[in-house]
Design a protein around this nucleic acid. Structure first.
Lengths: 202, 202
DNA sequence: ATTTTTCTTGACCGACCGGTCTGGTACCAC
DNA sequence: GTGGTACCAGACCGGTCGGTCAAGAAAAAT
């Protein structure tokens, strides 16, 4: 008896993600959202709840997509994927950062990372959202840590280098680039930031 | 004939700075500002113009204070100040970052840097404000560059290290720490980020 | 054809936004 | 005193915010 849904909730969520990314939480009004998502206001509330609930769903979706892609790139090492060329862990990490830089430069408006934007915009004002952001950064750190640990076992790291400390440094470098891009730093400047930041791995 | 001003405009501006720092531009409403600045609404408009004008004045004030303090710390080198102990440029840079870290950890709510917050919140939506933020980062880069150039002349840098690239890296590290702090990173994590980030200077 | 659910449209709500205006008071110079 | 200025308190403005509600159209199952 029920009529089938006429829109794809996941696609609508992705559209909301895009808008929140560009404009921030406060900056994306409900009217903007329903226009961008191509959904009626009622459908939005029926499907995703209020604005904050929608935002939390968006953050979860972003984490899923971003961490997924990240792990994809970072674990492209060894012989596990017979077709692709085998990469050392360090090369995979460098490749990951190159990808990130390319994306950041390409889409200046969104500026790096929704989570970084959210960390600053809502900040300590909303403990639950801050918790989500913090957990995300820890997952990113963990992904980098795993890659660095593999690099360490393969003897690719200099003596005395702590994978944990290196991973944290890389997280810092990564999201620093986000700010600098959003602040309008030149591509050359971002390049140098990245190169020096990664030089500790050499 | 005129009645004397009963409040100190500079102090009021500093109070506005504090609130914008904590809550962001949109997050600080006029009513909040009036209360925090302890000024009547009318005085605010008479003295500072509308909200955006006030914010621009606040940004200018912040730049003056922050860059001033920065140069103070970074130029505390050589024998120019007979009383204080002479510092090498590298030690001055390290000291500067230590100060920054201490401040960031102490006041989690403001989280590092008003300019970084602004870069993300208003982002590319307001070109004029973005220009102010960009100019600020360039000034910071210049201050660090000058210190690094002095270090280079004194032979404190490794061969092949570019002061310009290093300066940009340090800017990136600096404001990365801001995000991570605002995202709730532990003090230990921030410490390691800083240590590894500065290790390129060793 | 009837029923049931999902959808869209658009009116509507109270609250708050940034900004303006008015009235009254405190202070100074003359 | 008188006049002029700087201040304060608070009403008020149009507009937008997030959120709710009502009515009707469309589509599937029976």
């Amino acid at each position: 008896m029920p009529r089938v849904k006429e829109f794809d909730p996941e696609e609508a969520l992705d559209r909301a993600l895009d808008l929140f990314w560009r404009r921030g939480y406060e900056g994306a009004s409900l009217r903007d959202l329903i226009e961008h998502m191509e959904i009626s206001r009622q459908s939005l509330y029926d499907t995703f709840g209020d604005k904050r609930s929608l935002f939390l769903k968006v953050l979860a979706r972003y984490e899923e997509l971003a961490v997924g892609g990240m792990l994809d790139t970072l674990t492209r090492t060894g012989w596990s994927r017979p077709i692709e060329r085998p990469l050392t862990a360090l090369v995979a990490i460098r490749g990951f950062f190159e990808l990130f830089l390319a994306e950041v430069v390409l889409d200046r408006e969104r500026g790096s990372c929704l989570m970084a934007n959210t960390a600053i915009e809502v900040g300590p004002a909303d403990p639950e959202i801050q918790g989500v952001v913090k957990a995300y950064f820890l997952r990113v750190e963990e992904a980098l840590h795993a890659a660095l640990a593999r690099a360490g076992e393969a003897g690719e790291l200099r003596a005395g280098q702590e994978p944990r400390a290196l991973a944290r440094h890389l997280v810092n470098t990564l999201y620093g680039l986000g700010i600098m891009s959003r602040a309008g730093a030149s591509r050359a400047a971002l390049r140098q930031m990245l190169d020096v930041g990664l030089s500790v791995l050499a």
